[in-house]
Design a protein around this nucleic acid. Sequence first.
DNA 1: GGGAATATTCCC
DNA 2: GGGAATATTCCC
Lengths: 203, 203
Amino acid sequence: MVDHLELDKVAPFLIKLFEIVSSPASDNLVCWSEHGESFKIVDRTKFAQDVLPFYFKHDNLRSFIRQLNIYGFQRCQNSSGRDRTMEFFHPMFTRNGMRNLKDIKRGNQSKKNDTVEDGVDEVEQPQAKRPRVDYSTFKTDVARLQKNLEEFEHDLKQHTLQVQQKLAYILSALDDTPGAVQQPPADSEQRGSSPELSAGALL
Amino acid sequence: MVDHLELDKVAPFLIKLFEIVSSPASDNLVCWSEHGESFKIVDRTKFAQDVLPFYFKHDNLRSFIRQLNIYGFQRCQNSSGRDRTMEFFHPMFTRNGMRNLKDIKRGNQSKKNDTVEDGVDEVEQPQAKRPRVDYSTFKTDVARLQKNLEEFEHDLKQHTLQVQQKLAYILSALDDTPGAVQQPPADSEQRGSSPELSAGALL
DNA sequence: GGGAATATTCCC
DNA sequence: GGGAATATTCCC
């Protein structure tokens, strides 16, 4: 269906990672966070032993994390105090965002547009070392949602079109059938028109 | 004994390669050539299947060959016509030259001194495209043998010294033993000289 | 975490 | 064969 995920443009590591995190079978070892915006390694040892060698040529947690870092994932500090759980995050790696995978690049091949100036001039403010909230994740987050939305819209249009065509075909076939409905398909966007049988109206 | 092989300076690939080629157990699949100056892969398929995964994270002959090329190995054309055997060669990779392993470098990190000018000026000779024999392998070959020889000499000296010391110790111990043999063991290599007792003479 | 070396794959 | 991308290891 959605065949333009362009998985061929996505690094193998990311595809495997998505599969690993999404696979329900290993949810007790590694899984999405509640809202699917990050993922957790629950049992480091078992994860390394049982999951890694199935997808990679090693069973080494550190190598796995090295890859995460290379692709720009950030470690999230676990909320609770002493939790052995590890949590990682990348703005383009989300449960429902498989289509964003192709925008995750490795190493320092980052897109320059991440460094926009916030509308605040970068003049020195030497008075105090302001910890200064980092809005960049918000921005990339918004960008991601924006993009998702656009693509969903596109998909929806495609889908609508297809259904329309199929229905039109069915209706025309019915038309040719003696004793079938005579009513031709009306166009889709009509407001206040009398309710009638039409492909467009069904969408 | 010969503990200055400096294996810690040798790339893991080369150590494994040496082991693979030298191991008698797999001589039917991969082995040294007759004089130990190159090595042969006799059965490509079995070699890839049975040997490679034991040493590397893959069972891929092409990956193995890629590594050989990276380390500067050359493929030798098999003398016989249609032979599935593959033969590879590197001047510093020989059966008796384990100590040369540390001089094999990867990639283009070649030493400049390989490009000495042969005593022949590099002026253009556009008359004919002379195929011009490449003496560089000879030169590195000579260098290797030279080096081997020097190091063997060094080892021999060390060895001689040790044996001398041990014999001296034994002799002195015998000397202290009442009723022990007075007659020293006759030495082996002495021609016509009067037999006399000395550690050095035994060597 | 990340730089850098080494290993493996992919592609020409 | 080798360039280049990706993966894995090693080390700070």
